[in-house]
Design a protein around this nucleic acid. Structure first.
Length: 168
DNA sequence: CCCTAGCGGTGCT
DNA sequence: AGCACCGCTAGGG
């Protein structure tokens, strides 16, 4: 398996809706920060030098992000590093990753899917701890009775991502 | 619509 | 050990 470097490399990815910030470890994409209104225009967006593998991953993430925002599912799976989570969180995140594009689930359904039907609120917390939004699609999890539910980067982003996937 | 009680994982002390 | 968070939910005004 080789050595595992937890140290992160940061890369900035510019899109029509703002500048995303990606963190990479030696295993792949480990974190994605969505644009926060104030960072969009003025913040520095120049990457420090990246190792060649990371440069390639950066291009893949950029391509995938632009595809998602254009309403198309990404063509290839990205290397994701989800090693930071607890076992419970990793179960939740794996279940999120299995929700097909264009579909949604409720927090209760996720809880049932991992065999903890009453841990609904903990599922919500695990969704909030998801370090790779968009690609671990926590935005596809909605509240039980038609509510949008929360989103760590703000409900505005949740709606935008859902609109991208619904509109086609 | 609101409010409330109950829920379970996580992190801090 | 205890305790205060939370992207929740079902039930009842």
């Amino acid at each position: 398996l080789g050595q595992y470097y937890r140290a992160m490399h940061t890369a900035y990815i510019t899109t029509p809706v703002g500048v995303f910030q990606a963190q990479f470890t030696s295993r792949g994409l480990a974190g994605l920060d969505l644009p926060t209104g104030r960072r969009v225009a003025s913040r520095k967006t120049t990457d420090a030098p990246l190792p060649p593998v990371t440069q390639r991953w950066r291009r893949e993430v950029e391509r995938a992000l632009l595809a998602v925002l254009a309403g198309r599912p990404p063509s290839k799976a990205l290397p994701l590093d989800l090693s930071v989570g607890t076992p419970f969180q990793q179960q939740v995140w794996a279940t999120l990753a299995a929700i097909p594009c264009g579909q949604t689930r409720t927090y209760s359904q996720i809880a049932a899917a991992i065999g903890r039907p009453t841990a609904v609120r903990a599922v919500g917390q695990a969704c909030g701890a998801n370090p790779i939004p968009v690609f671990i699609p926590c935005h596809r999890v909605l509240a039980a009775h038609g509510g949008l539910g929360g989103f760590s980067a703000g409900r505005k982003w949740k709606r935008l991502l859902l609109d991208c996937e619904r509109g086609g």
